[in-house]
Design a protein around this nucleic acid. Sequence first.
RNA 1: GGCGACGUAGCUCAGUUGGUGAGAGCGCUCGACUCAUAAUCGAGAGGUCGACAGUUCGAAUCUGUCCGUCGCUACCA
Length: 564
Amino acid sequence: MADPPATDRRVGTAVLVAVAWPYASGSRHLGHLAGAYLPADIFARHQRLVGNRVLMVSGSDVHGTPITVRADAEGVAPADIVDRYHAEFVADWQRLGISWDLYTSTGTENHAAVTQDLFLRLLANGHIDRRSSDQYFDAAAERFLPDRYIEGTCPHCGYVEARGDQCEDCGRTLDPEELVDPRSKISGSMPELRSTEHFYLRLSDFTEELGKWLDSREGWRRHVLNFSKGWVDEGLKDRAITRDLDWGIELPVDDLGPGKRIYVWFEAVIGYLSAAKEWAQIQGDPEAWRDWWEDPEARAVYFIGKDNIPFHTIIWPGMLLGYGGLNLPDDVPANQYVTFKGGKASASRGVGLTIGEGLGLFEADSMRYALAAALPEQSDTDLSVEEIGRRINEELVATWGNLVNRVLSMVHKNCGVVPSPEGRTDGDLAVLESVDAALVRSTEQVERVELRAALRTGMDAAAEVNAYLNTTEPWKLVKSDAERARVVLGTALAAVAGVRVALSPYLPFSTAALDDVLGPVKSWERLEPVVGAPVPKPIPLFAKVDLEALLSGDDREEEGVDTE
RNA sequence: GGCGACGUAGCUCAGUUGGUGAGAGCGCUCGACUCAUAAUCGAGAGGUCGACAGUUCGAAUCUGUCCGUCGCUACCA
């Protein structure tokens, strides 16, 4: 490469890799993984190898009505639900090799403090105000009711168990006042409308500024920009920040009376900032977060699913503008959806696989490959167990796994150690140059967050090395010209080492499995293997998937496991 | 209802601001090879780019209508 990657982590550009906060209300599925966590990890791993200073943060989103609803349904405390799924997420990330710099939660004291700081600053700057409205009040329980805590008959379809925010039967969104015969989910009594006060974020203050900001964005995905501009063009509406809940972050002011908390949509996005501060504290350098949030040279890339777009392109930037002095997102490469047999993945509806279920069927790297090859970067992508298995067997194992295996086998058998690079012909050098070119090309693609294409680039390079072997036929040379055979095998091994770098962000476990022979991958460049290093008989990097067994298993009932 | 997206080879998808004969991977057919997880390499077949109309010298790409799929619609985040 033209510019050798910096090895000093303090030299490169500061890159904040901000990843959607998974809601600790149920298991996450492969759609979430392909939508945010996997692409973020691939991007972060690549950025580290090119020498940038990556800070990749996220955490479990532990507040919000769905969690309290679920806790009530199970007769446990919200914290029990949160603890269960937070632990599950942490285990998922570990098994998947998601390389967080910090994975925390919104349940920390630090997060509450940062949230309250933002609230107070926005309040002081005039971007938050108080408004009163009529809301349903449960006299028996002596509390106001969030929309989800009200049930009634849907005015559109007559469904008797419609929720205050949406009718599950006909799918229409509702206002609670529209419900016929409203009932409190807490006491079952008929709620009454009472006046109550809440704080509102004056998003409308930022309509013009956000519009200009969005117009100035370059390289953003079309659907992200269209959707965001659509919101601005319609006119931004002020949003209530607080809710009548006792599960959530407390207000730093007490003038609304008891029973009001800051609601999730406002505080969850603040997690990106609070996590950076928490990370800095853990590092023993409490001011270190400023490198990512205040330095204008720093980059911030937010990995989310498309359902989260307005929160990251409108609301969070609006909050940051109102706060002042902090970096706005540089890119929000929101992914579309993964569908399963045409339907949106949803654990609650039993569509698709949870991450845990996926890991029960496939090796982590294999599943990472299959999902990365099908990332819904431009449009929804349809997946199935068969499709994942096919990708693994016919692409990953056949092209890359087999290449590594055939090269290592021949080197082991005929040389026993890494051969010297001396004596390479133009043809030998050409294959190495094509691998180097692939590394340059895939960097350009990753910079644009075209991760599918960058994976393809790496796989194409692997195919070129396969073609090189078929042309040079080292298995014949070992009988006719042993010296030439050693040169060819050494070249092939060096090429494999380079392809391995290109694929390493996608395949961390199998990459590390080659450390003993090829050395650890520390930078985004093709390094010659150490001459004379022993090359033992190889173990296949990936197991083939038994598709028939999977298909018979796929017919079994897939039970929904949770709400979303 | 409103907004947005999508509908391109058997399957999953790419196709920057409209312009050499429409692409990739996989599958399929034929051939080569046999070191390698029956893997690899080469060649080839296969699509009137959802339908219709329009703008243009020229449209998969722009406009309109229609058909179909999906998402969002601000208290799920």
